[in-house]
């Protein structure tokens, strides 16, 4: 009952944000319509509550879903799985299983010693950071569901195919040898949770994640609002447009050493897109920033030889490049703008 009431209130607020922002900008603040300042203020007062509202709902739902997929459960679903089917399943599970790169080492050892094939383990490790729920919400909120789905679909494809390739290369000998010598520990009994527990876990996730990322969201939208108001249309088209062949690799090379959370990067993505950068180029940049991180590589160096880390980063980078070029080829600039 309380839930229905909250949902109705949420919908009511969410569907009237546009009018509220317009009223606040032109009515309450009395800014002249059509000026850069009015455009920037209206953009900001519309986007901030919209993105935060979406964020709360999606993080809550994802938080609840994640109570069904503990890493232990995911491992037992993947153990002994054949490749290909395993890669697909691992990439999908990578999205819904709670994962923190600080746990990458025990997770990796736990997977491979329980008989999850190396390539399947990589599909999981690639998908987990690459397909990020905060990124998904922001893309959905700022560009609509089509771009959000494109991001999720291509991210999954990269994780599946890159993991499959690593499996085909038979690089088990490039894992640090002591890893396979570790005896698998016992299978932990899974906790039994009530729906109340799951809902509580969802709200905890909202508190943790939204509590952490909201300043980035606000700051990013403020930067986006400034660009929206003052930078001329098509400003970036000449050097980040579809016809610049080197834009995609340049964006990826720039993105890999950058380490930021999704909330910080997407408003920048939005600003770039709006001023004429090509979708593929921008998506490749975003994936490189959030999907490949140097800190995670340093953590994984404990269990993987340098050569295997290079192959891992190389294959994923190649996948991101393909996504970038594919979108630039297929989608004309501007077609997916709101």
């Amino acid at each position: 009952m309380l839930g229905v009431l909250a949902l109705t209130a949420w919908l009511l607020v969410y569907t009237h944000l546009g009018e509220a922002a317009r009223w606040l900008t032109l009515g309450a603040l009395g800014l002249a319509p059509g000026t850069p300042l009015a455009a920037a203020v209206e953009f900001f007062t519309f986007e901030v509550p919209k993105v935060l509202l979406l964020l709360v709902v999606v993080v809550l739902v994802v938080g609840i879903i994640r109570t069904f997929f503990t890493p232990e459960r995911t491992r037992s679903l993947l153990a002994g799985r054949r490749e290909s089917v395993g890669n697909v399943l691992a990439a999908l599970l990578g999205v819904v299983t709670p994962f923190c790169s600080c746990s990458a080492v025990p997770l990796f050892i736990g997977f491979v010693t329980a008989g999850v094939p190396l390539g399947v383990t990589f599909s999981f490790l690639i998908a987990a950071p690459l397909i990020n729920e905060v990124a998904l919400v922001l893309l959905w909120g700022l560009f609509g569901w089509k771009i959000a789905l494109l991001y999720m679909g291509t991210g999954l494809a990269i994780a599946m195919i890159a993991g499959w390739i690593i499996g085909r290369l038979h690089l088990e000998s490039w894992v640090e040898p002591w890893v396979y010598a570790i005896p698998g520990g016992p299978n932990l009994a899974s906790e039994t949770l009530t729906w109340g527990d799951r809902l509580a876990a969802g709200w905890t996730a909202v508190g943790e994640i939204v509590g952490k990322v909201w300043p980035y969201v606000v700051l990013g939208i403020a930067v986006g609002a400034g660009i929206h108001g003052w930078v001329p249309e098509g400003f970036l088209a000449s050097f980040m447009g579809r016809d610049t062949w080197w834009a995609v690799p340049a964006a990826v090379l720039l993105g890999v050493p950058m380490y930021s959370n999704a909330a910080g990067i997407i408003p920048i993505v939005q600003a770039l897109l709006e001023k004429g950068a090509a979708l593929g180029t921008v998506l490749a940049f975003m994936m490189a920033v959030i999907g490949l991180s140097l800190p995670e590589a340093v953590i994984l160096r404990k269990v993987l030889t340098m050569r295997l880390i290079l192959v891992f980063f190389g294959v994923v980078t190649l996948g991101i490049l393909c996504v970038g070029y594919l979108f630039n080829l297929v989608i004309p600039t501007g077609v997916l703008h709101p």
Binding site: T70, R75, F99, S103, L107, G110, G185, P186, N187, L188
Partner: peptide
């Protein structure tokens, strides 16, 4: 790893895992 834990931090009491991840 001998505890069977896949995600840290974890809490165990007298060798029995009570909470993980």
């Amino acid at each position: 790893m001998a505890f069977g834990v896949l995600s840290t931090p974890a809490l165990a009491v007298d060798g029995v895992v009570k909470s993980a991840g």
